[in-house]
Design a protein around this nucleic acid. Structure first.
Lengths: 145, 145
DNA sequence: TTCCATGGTTGCACAGCCCAACCACCTGCC
DNA sequence: GGCAGGTGGTTGGGCTGTGCAACCATGGAA
């Protein structure tokens, strides 16, 4: 495959994937949208952070994050803790329930991916993962984090 | 990288990508949403098809496609032609303007991807493209096409 | 001819998003 | 101290994309 074709293909396939991912996530886990899942995952990974951090990391408007966070708190999946050093700040943390749901959804997502990738040779899997990381890590439009 | 980790990584990175793609596309091309772009692209590629075909291919509700198509027609980017064999059917075709805009957006998207992938070795590009095709082609949740 | 399937549209509701305006707090400078 | 400008967060308003359900028109088979 020539380089130009490869770039073209990557563009098209990434787009197709993006077009489907949200809907697929919604069908798989009606209880936790793709957005919520992502935010929860980030909280777990970071061990708690501010709403602004989430907004910056995901290139979302702070109002969007604010409403998502409000929803997640209403659902009892996260809690806000005051920051001792700055009264404006609320540090967001997963609750037990949040951690539980996140683990469940992660597991079922993982199972779906595993099934889908079941017949891939290990080396291909590993390379694919590497390429995705490299792609997402590269600077580009829509990447302000 | 172990297989389990690779699967985990692929899941996470694909999700991150999906989270960003729509917004990035919107920022890059306010005149043509990711959805419209995708539909136009499919029309170009297929040389004209029915709304139902689009809906099936992209796992969208037919009402969604109907509205998208209406918008694209209003914008003068596509036209509907009656199907001689079935009076219910409207075959959708790109107009000259549609072809023109699609080419522009494709080119600028291609440029963005190219820049982003500029320092990738050709072999990696080609393998990455191949993996994405393979992934998208595999059956899985959210894939009814 | 009658009945069901299929292609498409419309009404309705909802999620996710952004922008702008706003409040509360922090920080630096006078 | 006190004011100005920056920062974290919320709220109001509006748009797009989406699905579901109900509907209409046409096609096709019993």
């Amino acid at each position: 495959m020539h380089t130009a074709d490869a770039v073209e293909t990557i563009q098209r396939e990434m787009t197709v994937f993006a077009r489907r991912a949200r809907a697929a996530a919604g069908r798989m886990h009606p209880e936790l949208s793709l957005v919520s899942y992502t935010l929860l995952g980030h909280l777990e990974e970071s061990g708690g952070c501010r709403a602004t951090d989430l907004a910056v990391h995901y290139a979302l408007d702070k109002s969007t994050v604010s409403r998502q966070v409000a929803g997640l708190e209403r659902a009892g999946l996260i809690e806000r803790r005051p920051d001792a050093a700055d009264q404006r700040v609320q540090v967001l943390h997963l609750t037990g329930a949040g951690r539980h749901i996140l683990a469940q959804v992660t597991e079922s997502r993982r199972a779906a991916f595993r099934e889908r990738l079941a017949d891939w040779p290990a080396q291909d899997l590993s390379r694919f993962a590497d390429y995705l990381v490299r792609y997402n890590a590269s600077p580009g439009p829509g990447r302000q984090d």
